[in-house]
C-alpha cells in the first residue's frame, strides 16, 4: 500500500460518503489516468474522461455489485467513457479487425506455412528506437485489442479482472490478448529480423 492509499470503508462509500469516495479518487486516479491516456492518446482528453468517469461512478454507486472489485467496476466505466469519446471523435486506429486477422500466423495441415525468420538479439540490443516502436505498435491496435493489452500486459490486472471490466468471458480475454500479441509481434518483426 502506498503512502497515498488508505483502507476504504466500502459500506460508507456505497452509502454516498464523499469523504470515502474522494479516497477512491486519490488512490485510483494515477492508474485510471494511465489506462485512459493509453487508450485515447491525449492528456487533456484523458483528464476530462477520467473526471467524467468518477462523476458517473459516484452517480451510479447503486449499480456496484459486491461480487466484483470496486476498482474493476471503476475501470469498466472508464473504458466505456474512453470508447465513447473515440467513437464521438470518429478517431479510428490505424489497424482494423481485418488487419489483425492478416497478421496472425498461418498454418497448412496444422504446421507453419513458410518459415519463421529468427530475430537478431544484436538487432534487439542496438535498436535505439525500441521504446517508440513498441509504443507506436500498441497505439495502432483496434480498441478491443488495445484495451486488453493495456489492462493485462501493462497494468498487470488478472484475466478475471479484465473479463469483468470488459464484460466478456475469460476465454474471450485470452483470445483477444493472444491475437493482439501476435499482431504486435508482426509489427515489430521487420525491425528486429536478422
Amino acid at each position: 500500500m502506498s503512502a497515498t492509499e488508505s483502507v476504504l470503508d466500502v459500506d460508507a462509500l456505497l452509502g454516498g460518503s464523499r469523504q470515502e469516495f474522494e479516497k477512491l479518487v486519490v488512490q485510483e486516479s494515477p492508474r485510471l489516468f494511465r489506462v485512459i491516456v493509453r487508450m485515447v492518446g491525449d492528456d487533456d482528453e484523458a483528464r476530462s474522461i477520467m473526471q467524467e468517469t468518477f462523476l458517473q461512478a459516484y452517480q451510479r454507486l447503486d449499480t456496484f455489485r459486491r461480487e466484483s472489485k470496486l476498482t474493476t467496476w471503476l475501470y469498466a466505466i472508464g473504458i466505456n467513457q474512453a470508447r465513447a469519446a473515440l467513437r464521438k471523435a470518429k478517431r479510428t486506429s490505424s489497424l482494423d479487425d481485418q488487419d489483425v486477422e492478416r497478421m496472425q500466423p498461418t498454418f497448412t495441415k496444422g504446421m507453419f506455412s513458410g518459415s519463421v525468420d529468427a530475430w537478431s538479439p544484436l538487432q534487439m540490443a542496438e535498436l535505439s528506437e525500441r521504446k517508440r516502436l513498441v509504443h507506436d505498435a500498441i497505439s495502432k491496435l483496434p480498441p478491443d485489442y488495445k484495451e486488453v493489452v493495456i489492462m493485462r500486459d501493462i497494468e498487470q490486472l488478472s484475466t478475471d479482472e479484465v473479463a469483468e471490466a470488459l464484460n466478456i468471458t475469460n476465454g474471450a480475454v485470452r483470445v483477444r490478448l493472444h491475437r493482439a500479441r501476435q499482431t504486435l509481434r508482426e509489427l515489430l518483426d521487420s525491425h528486429i529480423r536478422e
Partner: peptide, 30 residues
C-alpha cells in the same frame, strides 16, 4: 516464434516502466 512472442510480451510489459507522466495536480483538479 515462441521466442519472438515472449520477447514481444516483455517489451510491452516494459511500457509500464516508462510511466505515463501524470498532469500537474491531476487529483486536485478531479
Amino acid at each position: 516464434y515462441f521466442y519472438q512472442y515472449r520477447t514481444t510480451v516483455e517489451l510491452v510489459q516494459q511500457e509500464r516502466e516508462h510511466d505515463v507522466a501524470l498532469p500537474d495536480e491531476l487529483i486536485e483538479h478531479t
